[in-house]
Simulated scan of single mutants.
Amino acid sequence: MIDWNDVIKYANQGSPEPDRRVEKTDDEWRKELSPEQFRITRLKGTEAAFSGELCHAHDPGQYACICCGTVLFDSTLKFESSSGWPSFTEPAKDNVIKYEKDTSYGMVRVEVMCNVCDGHLGHVFPDGPPPSGLRYCINSESIKLLKEAE
């Protein structure tokens, strides 16, 4: 399980190698993504708090990158953080998330991206519930829910 010390190490020294890479031009991404998905994932934007359709979703399944389809989070690790964005305690696998130090807007945070395609997801914070103590704060527009078969 990843903890805050691992997050800081990855942000400063580099993230684990992904199982694969997906690289496309901005024009290729624009053809595949909605304008809002492109703005958030490729231009490092964010959606307004409490506006994302997945913020309060509780269906069982896995959450995958909207850009490349890589499974990033499991619904069993999603929790209500009252932050306004879908929140998770840990990734599906240690090497699916890329961590980078983010000093934008006069703050110091850790940005999280899909490690396969570099799509911006959101940020991770050390104020989540046990056992990881992490809160992955993710834009709904960056992910899609792959529901379990009923």
Rank of each mutant, 00 (worst) to 15 (best):
I2P: 07
D3F: 08
N5A: 15
K9Q: 15
Y10F: 15
A11Y: 05
Q13Y: 13
Q13S: 15
G14Y: 02
P16F: 10
E17D: 14
D19W: 07
E23Q: 11
W29Q: 03
L33S: 03
Q37R: 07
Q37H: 05
R39L: 10
I40A: 03
R42H: 06
L43W: 05
K44Q: 11
G45Q: 08
T46W: 01
E47L: 08
A48I: 10
A48M: 11
A48E: 14
A48D: 14
E53A: 14
E53H: 12
C55Q: 13
H56S: 14
A57F: 12
A57E: 15
G61V: 06
Q62K: 12
Y63C: 07
I66L: 00
G69T: 04
L72P: 00
F79I: 10
S81G: 07
S82T: 13
S83G: 15
W85L: 00
P86F: 02
S87C: 09
T89Y: 11
K93D: 07
K98S: 10
E100P: 11
E100N: 12
K101R: 14
D102E: 04
S104D: 09
R109Y: 01
V110K: 01
C117I: 01
C117E: 02
D118N: 13
L121Y: 07
G122N: 06
P126V: 09
D127Q: 01
G128T: 03
G133W: 05
L134F: 11
L134V: 09
N139Y: 05
S140D: 09
S142I: 04
K144N: 00
K144V: 04
L145E: 01
